[in-house]
């Protein structure tokens, strides 16, 4: 089932074309990474999909509806860039997760029960009453995911989820996303400046630099002309591959 459809999308902000004729479709249960250089329109695409920005041309259908209608169903989750959350936000882990249930018609006791289940699910049991602001980047990200999951979404949008997280935490975070897709059938759309993530953790890649230079599976993405079109210069890649056993998991990918 088509869960997201972006058709002929153009977005202009103050006469600058940020996105131009973007077309893509996402099926239910897919993990899609939107990659590209800084300023290439990745975050704008996510924000347009969520209804924060109106398309100049074209349209978006999320869960078969215009974005603002889709949001009202409560089936859409959003995890913004970490830097957009106040550093000293004065809430405990439980308080933050409960925010995700703010519009659900449940008793306070039921809400707490659900929130505690998801805190455990994301591996944060024992931290329920800990200050959110004092957690590490990776832990905060897990709590934020729990906040999104309590609302029982069908699709979640993640904006640069790996920023501010160390490499080990990043890997376990991506593993966790795959587990989410498997266990909950979630569709995940993730913006990332890190194209290393593409090789191992996602089903489809959207290479975006104002225009959509590539949309398809991960194998087809690592081609010289695609990467050069996308990044505008010669690109050398250091890709981490779990299948590689001969060179301690790191090798330079030969570009075709």
């Amino acid at each position: 089932m088509k869960i997201l459809e972006v058709k002929d999308l153009t977005v202009k902000i103050e006469n600058n074309i940020i996105l131009e004729d973007v077309n893509l479709e996402v099926e239910e249960g897919e993990i899609v990474a939107v990659v590209g250089p800084n300023g290439g329109g990745k975050t704008t695409l996510i924000k347009t999909c969520l209804g924060f920005i109106k398309p100049t041309k074209g349209y978006i259908k999320l869960l078969g509806k215009p974005p603002r209608e889709a949001i009202k169903t409560g089936k859409v989750g959003y995890l913004p860039q970490k830097s957009s959350i106040p550093k000293n936000f004065p809430y405990s882990v439980l308080d933050v997760v409960l925010l995700g249930l703010i519009n659900k018609k449940l008793s306070k006791k039921e809400k707490i029960e659900i929130a505690l289940q998801y805190i455990e699910y994301v591996g944060m049991k024992g931290f329920e009453h800990a200050p959110y602001s004092k957690l590490s980047g990776g832990q905060q990200q897990r709590v934020s995911i729990a906040r999104v999951l309590v609302a029982d979404p069908k699709i979640i949008f993640l904006d640069e989820p790996s920023t501010g997280i160390d490499v080990v935490a990043q890997e376990s975070f991506y593993d966790f996303l795959q587990r989410l897709r498997k266990e909950k059938g979630l569709t995940i759309i993730m913006v990332s400046h890190d194209i290393g993530v593409v090789g191992t953790f996602v089903d489809k890649v959207a290479g975006l630099n104002r225009k959509l230079h590539y949309y398809g599976d991960t194998k087809g993405f690592f081609q010289k002309h695609i990467l050069e079109n996308l990044y505008g210069s010669e690109v050398k890649l250091l890709v981490h591959s779990p299948e590689c056993v001969t060179c301690e998991h790191f090798h330079i990918q030969d570009l075709h």
Partner: peptide, 19 residues
Amino acid sequence: FQKIMYCCYNEEVAFVSGI
């Protein structure tokens, strides 16, 4: 209170949650 605090946490997230 909780809705206002949700907006302080992140306005866009709060908006997606229907606030």
